[in-house]
Amino acid sequence: MNHFNEEELIDYHYGESVSADADSVARHLRECADCARSYAAIERDLAEIAVPATPVRGEDYGQQVWDGIRGSLRAYPAPERRRWFQFAPGSQWKGLAAVAACLLVIAGAFFAGRLWEHRNPQHPVANNAAGDQGREKVVLVVLGDHLDRSERLLVELKHAEPSTEGPIQAEARELLASNRLYRESVKQAGDPTLANALDHLERVLIEVSNEPAGLSQAKLDELQKEMNTDGLLFEVRVLRSRVQDDVEQRENKPAATKGVSI
């Protein structure tokens, strides 16, 4: 008599045995006292593993979630309408001919490109180095600008009067999209200090932009106390000057330094 092991019995318990196997397990459990005992023990143990009670969320929970993220999402661009390439129904041959023509043009362009490369050899190393350096510098300048704008927003927030929908919220929404982009890039580049600061900044920006009734005094106080906007302002200042230093360093030492890379 072939006995079933623990893994097979667990599969059977969770209904994972294929139907033929399930039948043979059930039959075997009726006939074999040892396996029946083992299975009973598995059932008892698994029955005792409690499923923790999930906190109740109200019916409007989904709406709350949506209200929370709505401001951070950008609408997808509506698809463009088809024009000259919109074929009449049943004109598949015309469509195929057009596709074939496009393929010919692409193939022609490809071979022309290769021919051009052979005749005009490039110096990729030098070009890439110069290109990378230029690109990194541009990125640093853009990041510096982002931190600069964020710093101004935090200063305004610090001295803001309670108001309904105002320019601070509009600015926060604008910054939010770019901040998310920078945060992801910085995280991937492995700069935890900058990534954490941008993460903190993002939470503040979400709070500010998603306040539907404008910024009340209570909200401003909450931002200051719970989200520590003063501390964040300091962090952003430090990081901005660090990025600025990196930009200057790159200007002075064109090829040697590394600095903040995102």
Binding site: G62, Q63, W66, R70, R74, A75, Y76
Partner: peptide
């Protein structure tokens, strides 16, 4: 197709 608010129904 550009109707951002429709996503709200999925969230809900």
């Amino acid at each position: 197709a550009g109707d951002k608010d429709a996503y709200g129904a999925l969230v809900v």
